[in-house]
Amino acid sequence: MEYLLHILIYIGIYSILSVSLNLLVGYTGILSIAHAAFYGVGAYVAALMALKLHSPFILNLLLGIIAAGILGALIGIPSLRIKDDYFVIATFAFQVIVFSVLNNWVSFTSGPMGLPGIPQPDIFGLKISSHIEFLILVTLLAALVFWISNRVVKSPFGRVLKAIREDEVFAQSFGKNIFAFKLKVFMISAALAAIAGVMYATYISFIDPTSFTIMESIFIISIVIIGGAGNLWGSVIGAVVLVALPELLRFVGLPNAVAANIRQILYGSLLVIFMMWRPQGFIGEYFFKQESENQ
């Protein structure tokens, strides 16, 4: 039972990450591989606040969100001015920078040793400690992230995002400031990812930089693409499938060391299979590589 709840909590955390990344990848058509950086910043801000200042959970959560939003602006302002593949490479660079800072600023982040003993959330006297309590909190926060994202994509603002995804020149010719729209959605996406980070840190109670590497970014992108870019429910379905599926490997009776490698192979194969035969994912509306197909 505990094990099942643990999986469900992970699904909640990854749903937050994939829904927030979908705003960029699926709706705006910009592929960022810095998502794990924002996830990590949320986790580290909340953990350091709790450990060093003993500040309350809600404040830590808010500060994690704000810090990731600001970092989103700092990363977005230079990188969103460049396009397509170059943007991907720029976000890759920032992802590596954030990881290096977390890993090497030992006096502040403890570097590779990580931060143990992160206290569990305490929301105005309500202590979150059991699995079921964590699951409820994660589910509520995931629902909030979904609601915010849904509001964004269904609004006229979201309509402009889709227009940017399809044809920037057209959107610009009708007065839309492409950079401003991209920057706003980039900041929102980063800020929402931090919520997942805060939950991860307080749930596991230990974080180290290896949880927030480029591999993690790619895993989140896989969820978005396999679930379906441009569809928020797709990201939830993607999170369920990609988090739960490897767990099934445990029941096949493979040794743990082998299972971990098989998991990576599985993600990679799934991504290749989907890109080749079902580029819109399970229920996505946005095809990757659509333009080249049309032309």
Partner: peptide, 13 residues
């Protein structure tokens, strides 16, 4: 406002 010679629209909406 303008139109384009290569006919631009947001085709997937």
């Amino acid at each position: 406002s303008r139109t384009f010679q290569d006919l631009r629209l947001i085709r997937q909406i």
